[in-house]
Design a protein around this nucleic acid. Structure first.
Lengths: 200, 200
DNA sequence: ACGAATTCTTGCGTGCCGCGCACGTTTACG
DNA sequence: CGTAAACGTGCGCGGCACGCAAGAATTCGT
């Protein structure tokens, strides 16, 4: 009876409208600019009441960033999927690189537009950083599992945080690179630098 | 005629009211909680019109975090003040440690309350992360100067970002440490780990 | 298979916030 | 000392987040 693996029919519908909402918010904001979009527009676009919109997201920014946050969270699963005998840093590096579109660019213009929007619009910067922080926590948990540490310890969270910084920085440089540069290369550079030690 | 080094009489008055505003916002929010404080209260507390408040800060969160941001910016100057022959990482480490209350704790309860508030109240998290990002940019600029690199290069910004993560993480662990631990120790641990390389 | 209970959606109303506009006052400068 | 620029302030508007309660849809027990 279940079309997907998650049983609840109701939950699937919820996630579906939530995704539609976030998608509509992103699309409209890219088209018109952040403050030329009213909540009513987003709700209408997704076929829902404006009031319902606020049952899913408590701010415009939250709706827009949600997709990006979801994607960032998956990085934790990719880390978990790495072979257990791999050294931690190699596993993390490989996971991040694999998660960010292996080696050749498939820019996915819709997604890059989203990233560029987040970094451009000041009203979204805060929410973006919150999303990165949440993703870092998820990664820290995965890393802690892997090395058998407490998720509240310093080391796993430090590693996760450093990876987050590298990702953010690589993304930003990638967006503003005048001769386009593959994202994977930037990521690898940043991660290698962190892995090798900043004191040199 | 000038009581301080910055000449403009007008500018000093501006910075003064801005500081008063930020201080009032912080104090009231610590006392009553974030959404039990109205802008009118903050403005009244600082002896200014509510309308004027919005000429200085465009949101409650911005006002509260402003002091913290200002303090974080100073870290860049501390880095610049380090002897030029010192290796980069040592200079950065020393600067951060010196900037965060050398070795023995002078908790400054007013300030710790502010930090705890920022990390507790979800409505402030976004603005806090934005502040850290701005501070990172300032530090990256100082670092770039020191090593004679372009501020837009990857390396200085990576170093600054890593330091920012270490600072954030150390602060958080410090606030939630059941047997109190000196902040400097946590900072040193995090920075050493980053300096020595995360691949081990 | 059918009715009850839980959950979701929606309309309405409220309080607050950010900001544009215009005017009076204060400050800087020649 | 007079002119011009910058600042503070009152007024008002559009929008947003959310509490509340009623209606609709879905799940579950039997």
């Amino acid at each position: 009876m279940d079309t997907t693996r998650t049983g609840g029919l109701r939950e699937r519908k919820k996630e579906q409208t939530r995704a539609a909402l976030s998608w509509a918010a992103l699309r409209l904001t890219v088209e018109r600019g952040f403050d030329n979009v009213k909540v009513e527009d987003i709700a209408t676009e997704a076929g829902v009441s404006p009031r319902t919109y606020n049952n899913y997201f408590s701010s415009k920014a939250e709706a827009i960033v949600w997709r990006h946050l979801n994607r960032a969270r998956q990085a934790a699963d990719v880390i978990r999927a790495r072979p257990a005998d791999e050294p931690l840093w190699d596993a993390v590096t490989a996971a991040v690189l694999a998660h960010a579109g292996s080696e050749h660019d498939e820019p996915d213009p819709e997604w890059t537009a989203g990233v560029r929007l987040m970094m451009t619009e000041p009203a979204l910067l805060g929410e973006m950083h919150k999303a990165y922080a949440a993703a870092n926590d998820a990664c820290a948990e995965a890393i802690a599992e892997r090395i058998g540490a407490d998720p509240h310890d310093m080391y796993p969270r430090l590693v996760a945080g450093a990876v987050g910084v590298a990702t953010q920085l690589a993304s930003e440089l990638w967006l503003t690179a005048d001769p386009p540069v593959p994202l994977a290369a930037l990521l690898r550079d940043a991660l290698d630098e962190l892995g090798g030690g900043l004191a040199r």
